[in-house]
Every structure is written in structure tokens, then in C-alpha cells.
Design a protein around this nucleic acid. Structure first.
Length: 584
RNA sequence: GUUCCCGUGGCCUAAUGGAUAAGGCACUGGCCUCCGAAGCCAGUCAUGUGAGUUCGAAUCUCACCGGGAACACCA
């Protein structure tokens, strides 16, 4: 980039200025100017002033004096329009036309690659979604899927290959309940077209019977014993119904635009887990308390820590497996299946201690990669009044219901706002808008903050929301279409740029930096916020600057800018799993 | 009891240790003969408390207050 080179030249000059004055140059760092309307870089002189032994007066005063001194020394470097020493900062403003052209040109050239870099190196594995078969998905699962998917996208965009994996809970009491209920009351029935829904309804029915009908509970226990006995008929039924459930999940993942590279099943790590526990007992790491007590690893005792790692329970006293039993072989399997740089777990914050224990256990077992396991902890989704979602208490919002409700609402709005669309277009747009609207609040806040779900917010298509961003994209698209769809081959920003278009170009140019930061910190919320700010900048521009009706010399440049904005909005939305419709 | 997370206008959220704390919702009043009003413009209102570090703190440290979570056989 031309401006990178100019910056380097500038930094060299600043360095010689600092050396001449005996100032610690390592403390000189360029940053963005917070005000809009013009662009450039700012150099704060406070650290230099504080370190200067020849300082006269207060630090801010001296910073201002230094800024002025450097300003006088630099004159006006090539590529800059003016310099300004104010409030202890030296602000260096770029020549607008060159900078604008450079930004817009590179966005148009890179198009849908703008903001991403090619991948290289060892892959990072990201485990997320992790649903239980035979059970419905609720909005808590949605946050996990959206977050995991977005983090995967971000890492990919920042140049890391990614392996997306899903760890499916395909065994346990919930499965037995479902199958027992099915055999007793729905034997031979086939799933409805909406498999997710059908499975969920039967699960709710089974769960209700289980808690209300002692006879059914009895039947389930007996059924479980037959399962443990390895009865072939039950195995066949399990495989069949699990496949139904997986097909249901696939339907939902397709709808959400998610995919996985590898599926791990709980059932495939259960036996290896039990074998590992025996090894751990033999090696002396684990203590076998059976038959009265479970098999444990007393981490605090082993490590000499106090109430930090606590006790990890790795096998029940009756010899049956626990979550932890299976987690250990799964972690090992991941690193042997792939040569991983990192193994990320997207799991809610309540499992932080458990994750910390697993990592430590694997470290004690001698796996060099254990430190490369990383828990991405996120907060749960609540209901108003700090009500935790629980299917047992019936305080749960099913994903299915939410998507249906949002789509219906979107459909009505699209019909009202844009009646000229065909039925097929209307449906497609409504779905994209509805999904965007329900995804956005899940991803736009920090991972560590609780999301409180309420229908009003989830179905609000105004304000800071995905539909607002999508709408900006649609309007940009609309201008380009009206202009004839042809892209100007040559354009220049040699005219007096309006503050709103300078601001828009500035926002567009920040995208790659935002992607890097979001990837590094595993924070998709930064991109969600950025996408909104970008859309807002575009709206400002849209309201203040004419494009199609502009004079010939301005028109080409503004069309190019609109196209660059359109591309950047679309790319940003894509990273957070939201589609950008052409029309709406 | 130990540990972790969160406290920013009436409500929800934003702000790589840096300049004037930024938006949304709600409320009030304006704007469709002008590239689409899911929009735009204008208005009122905020960093839990107290110390510390720093030239400079919403941000870092400590204490306290308030809310949530985890802590031996759920996942």
C-alpha cells in the first residue's frame, strides 16, 4: 500500500526528531484521529513529554510544545495535505483524493476477498453446537452455533485454516426416554417433513410422561437395562432414530448456513474413555473409590494447589461413564486425527472449571499439546426476570418457534414494503431478513455478557439490527442497478469530498484491521458492531451525497465508492453468518 | 467459604490506557413532487462506591456494594 510506505517514511523522520532531542522513540506510536470529516494519523506526545528530562511545565503543556516543534520540522511531507498540533497531539492529514482512490480501488479489486487473507499453517479446530440427539434446539443453542460459526469464519479470514467439528450427544437417558416412548405409543411411525419439529414434539411427550407417569418411568428404567444388555433390536432402533435426528439437525444447519467438517459422537468415545480410566488408575493419577465412591483425580492434591482445580470425577461408582470420561479420549482423538495448532471449545461459561480440569488432566498425562486447548466461554441466554431456560420448567424458547415467528413477521413486512417482488423472492428475502434479525442480537454483544431473550427485541427489524444493515446493502445495490450495472473503469476523487463520504471511505478502510482484531480476540461482536457502523456511515453518505444525479466527473467516483461499500457490508455480514439480500 | 463473570442515561449496548464517553430502544417534534421512509434530522438524560498506579482511567490493581454462575458421581 502506498500509504504504508508514506507512513514508514514519516516514522523515520519522527525517529530522527526524537533522537536529536534524546527522547525514547519506542514510545512514539501512531493512532487514528477520532474526529470525522478528514483522515489521517495522530501522534500523541504525552509519553515522550513525560519521559523528557528537559521538560518544562506540565506534561500536557510540554507535549503540545513538542508537537509544535515536530510540526515545524516536518513541514508538509509528501502525500499529506496538512499538519496540526493540538492538545498534545500532532495530527497528520492525508491528501484526500489519493487516499480515497487507493482504498476504493483495492476493495473493488479484492471484491469478496476484501478483509480476508489466504490461509496457511496448521489448522485450528473449533468444536461448537454440540446438540443432543432426540431433543429440540432452543435459542441457547443458537447463540452457540452463531458464535462458533462466526469465530470459525473470522479465523479463516485472518489466514488460519479451520476444522469445524460438532460433538453430538447421541447416548444417555434422554435417548432412552425418547425410544421407549416411541415404541410404546408411536411404534412404526415415520418422521414428518419437519424432522426437527417432529423429534422435538415426541421428546416433549416422553419427558412429560417420564415426570408424570410412574409406570412410564418404570418402563424407561427397564428399557435402559435392556440397552445396557446390548439388545440388538434397541441398537437398530437407536441407529435409525439417531439418523432421523441428525437429518433434522442438518435441516437447521442448512437454514442457518452452518456446516461441519467432522462429527464426533459421544457413543464412539465412551468405551475408549472407560479404558483410559483404567490406565489412569494404574498410573496412579486417578484414585479408584469403587464400589462406594467414584473414580476421581484429586487435582489440588496432585498439584499442591488449594481449591483451585478441585476434584475431577471421571467415572461413576457403578462404573458407568460421565461427561469427563468421554472428554479425555475425545481431546486425544482430535489431536491424532489432525495436526492442530489450537483446539478451541465453544462451550458456555458454566463449564469453565470442568474445561480447566480436563486441560490439566491431559497435561498431567503428558500430552504436549494440552496447553493448546482453549475454552471459549460465553454467557448463557436468559429470559426476562433472570429466568434460566429449562425444558423441565417449560421456560424454553424453541429455535423452531423463533424462526417460524420471525419469518412470518418478515414476510408480512416484505409484502408491505415491497409488493412488486415475486412470491419466491418475497419468501427468500423474508427468510434472510428473519434469520439476520434473530442472529444479530446473539452475536452483537460481548461473549461474557448474558443475552436476555425477549420476543420484542428478537422480532424488531428497526434500529441497530441486521435488517438495518441489510437495508443499507440493498440501497447500495439499488443505486448500482439504476446506474446501469456497469462499473466505471476509471474514476478519480479529485473533487471536494463531503465529510460523509470521507467518513465512509475511512470506515471501509478499517475493515481488514477489524477482522484481524476480532479473530485475535475471538470476538465476533466487534464485526457485528463494525457492520452496523459501516451501514450507518453509508446511510449518512446516501442522505448527503447524490450519486446518479451527480455531475459526470463525480458520478464515476461515487459509483465506485457505493460498490466498495456494498462489498464491504456484504463481507462483514458474511463473517457473522448473515446474508445480504440484493433486494428487500 | 473459594473462584470466575457482569455493573455506563428510563431500558439495552459501544468505546487498541489518550482528545468532546458513541449508538439503539422508548419518549417528543419535524421530513416522502428529489438515487427506496426497514430510512433521515432535532431534543432530554450516563461510567455502582472508595482508594491506588499513571502525564492521562469506563478501561489496569485493591477493597467494598449490588447481580449472576461454578465448586465429588448432570452435561
Amino acid at each position: 500500500m502506498m500509504f504504508d510506505r508514506r507512513k514508514e517514511q514519516l516514522i523515520a523522520k519522527i525517529q530522527s526528531f526524537c533522537e536529536a532531542k534524546g527522547l525514547p522513540i519506542q514510545k512514539a506510536e501512531l493512532r487514528n484521529i477520532p474526529f470525522s470529516g478528514e483522515w489521517g494519523v495522530a501522534l500523541p506526545f504525552f509519553p515522550l513529554a513525560a519521559a523528557d528530562r528537559d521538560r518544562s511545565g506540565s506534561v500536557p503543556q510540554h507535549a503540545q510544545a513538542l508537537a509544535e516543534a515536530l510540526k515545524a520540522e516536518l513541514g508538509i511531507p509528501e502525500g499529506f495535505s496538512r499538519l496540526e498540533a493540538v492538545n498534545g497531539y500532532l495530527n497528520l492529514y492525508f491528501s484526500t483524493s489519493e487516499y480515497a482512490k487507493e482504498v476504493v480501488t483495492s476493495v473493488l479489486n479484492e471484491s469478496n476477498r476484501y478483509g480476508s487473507r489466504p490461509g496457511s499453517g496448521k489448522p485450528t479446530m473449533i468444536e461448537y453446537s454440540n446438540p443432543n440427539t432426540h431433543k429440540p434446539l432452543h435459542v441457547g443453542h443458537l447463540r452457540n452455533v452463531i458464535l462458533g460459526g462466526a469465530v470459525s469464519n473470522l479465523l479463516e479470514a485472518s489466514g488460519k485454516p479451520v476444522v469445524r467439528v460438532n460433538y453430538i450427544g447421541d447416548i444417555g437417558l434422554h435417548v432412552i426416554k425418547w425410544m421407549c416412548n416411541y415404541e410404546m405409543y408411536h411404534a412404526g411411525e415415520e418422521p414428518a417433513a419437519d424432522k426437527m419439529r417432529w423429534m422435538a414434539d415426541l421428546y416433549a411427550e416422553a419427558d412429560k410422561r417420564f415426570s408424570e407417569d410412574p409406570a412410564f418411568e418404570h418402563a424407561v428404567r427397564a428399557y435402559f437395562a435392556r440397552w445396557d444388555g446390548g439388545e440388538q433390536h434397541l441398537k437398530d432402533l437407536w441407529l435409525l432414530t439417531r439418523a432421523w435426528s441428525m437429518e433434522g439437525f442438518e435441516q437447521v444447519y442448512d437454514l442457518l448456513g452452518e456446516h461441519f467438517d467432522h462429527i464426533y459422537f459421544e457413543s464412539e468415545v465412551e468405551e475408549p474413555g472407560k479404558l483410559l480410566v483404567e490406565d489412569l488408575i494404574k498410573s496412579g493419577l486417578a484414585e479408584d473409590g469403587r464400589p462406594e465412591n467414584p473414580v476421581i483425580i484429586d487435582l489440588d492434591k496432585k498439584l499442591g494447589t488449594k481449591e483451585e482445580y478441585r476434584v475431577a470425577v471421571i467415572l461413576r461408582s457403578d462404573g458407568t461413564s460421565l461427561y469427563a470420561t468421554k472428554e479425555i479420549p475425545l481431546a486425544i482423538m482430535k489431536f491424532s486425527d489432525y495436526e492442530l495448532d489450537e483446539s478451541i471449545y465453544v462451550i458456555d461459561v458454566r463449564q469453565s472449571l470442568h474445561m480447566k480440569q480436563m486441560k490439566k488432566v491431559l497435561e498431567l498425562m503428558g500430552y504436549e499439546w494440552a496447553p493448546r486447548m482453549r475454552h471459549l466461554a460465553y454467557e448463557i441466554v436468559n429470559l426476562p426476570g433472570n429466568v434460566t431456560m429449562s425444558s423441565r420448567d417449560g421456560t424454553v424458547v424453541l429455535l423452531d418457534d423463533l424462526i417460524r415467528e420471525a419469518t412470518e413477521r418478515a414476510l408480512a413486512i416484505v409484502r408491505e414494503k415491497n409488493p412488486s417482488l415475486s412470491e419466491a423472492e418475497t419468501r427468500e428475502v423474508a427468510l434472510e431478513v428473519a434469520l439476520g434479525a434473530i442472529k444479530y442480537p446473539m452475536i452483537s454483544r460481548e461473549n461474557t455478557k448474558i443475552v436476555t431473550f425477549d420476543w420484542e427485541t428478537a422480532l424488531d427489524f428497526n434500529g441497530q439490527s441486521a435488517p438495518y444493515i441489510q437495508y443499507a446493502h440493498v440501497r447500495a445495490n439499488s443505486i448500482l442497478t439504476k446506474a446501469g450495472g456497469r462499473k466505471p473503469e476509471r474514476f478519480d476523487f479529485d473533487y471536494d469530498l463531503q465529510p460523509s463520504e470521507i467518513n465512509l471511505i475511512e470506515m471501509i478502510s478499517h475493515f481488514p484491521v477489524e477482522v484481524e482484531r476480532a479473530a485475535k480476540e475471538l470476538k465476533p461482536s466487534l464485526i457485528a458492531t463494525y457492520a452496523y457502523d459501516l451501514a450507518k456511515s453509508f446511510s449518512d453518505f446516501y442522505n448527503q451525497c447524490q450519486v446518479i444525479n451527480a455531475s459526470a466527473e463525480i458520478r464515476g467516483a461515487r459509483l465506485a465508492l457505493v460498490d466498495a461499500a456494498r462489498i464491504t457490508i456484504k463481507n462483514a455480514l458474511k463473517l457473522i453468518g448473515i446474508k445480504a439480500p440484493r433486494i428487500m
